[in-house]
């Protein structure tokens, strides 16, 4: 399959919110920040696999809904003092359409 996949329009993701891309190898959480940047990370917190897509987004960070770990969306890394990392996927927006690179899936 091609690396870049169209997933939908930017408007379908609420600002400071998230949507899920379902794949055969687990869910990917797509986030839209207040500056309309799009990030994609595996929808599992490094702590106890909480669904990050359901967390509160602030800056480039999401707070996991289960135990409030904070994950940097650009790197997938937990903010200190917590330690851990989830996978990230490249994204881009073309004419209002969001694409995600699933090569590393």
């Amino acid at each position: 399959m091609s690396e870049w996949v169209e997933v939908g329009s930017l408007e379908q993701i609420p600002r400071l919110g998230s949507r899920i891309v379902q794949t055969g190898k687990g869910d990917i959480a797509l986030f839209r920040t207040s500056r309309d940047e799009i990030f994609a990370v595996r929808d599992a917190c490094p702590h106890k696999q909480g669904p990050l897509s359901q967390g509160i987004v602030h800056g480039n960070v999401v707070t996991c809904p289960l135990h409030s770990w904070e994950i940097d969306l650009s790197s997938g890394e937990a903010l200190p003092p917590d330690e851990g990392c989830t996978n990230t996927f490249a994204t881009r927006v073309e004419k209002g359409v969001v694409l995600i690179n699933l090569a590393s899936l």
């Binding site: 379908q12 919110g17 891309v21 794949t23 699933l102």
Partner: peptide, 12 residues
């Protein structure tokens, strides 16, 4: 609609 996945990728 926002409660459902934005996209389902079947061949991945």
């Amino acid at each position: 609609g926002r409660f459902a996945p934005i996209k389902i990728v079947t061949d991945a």
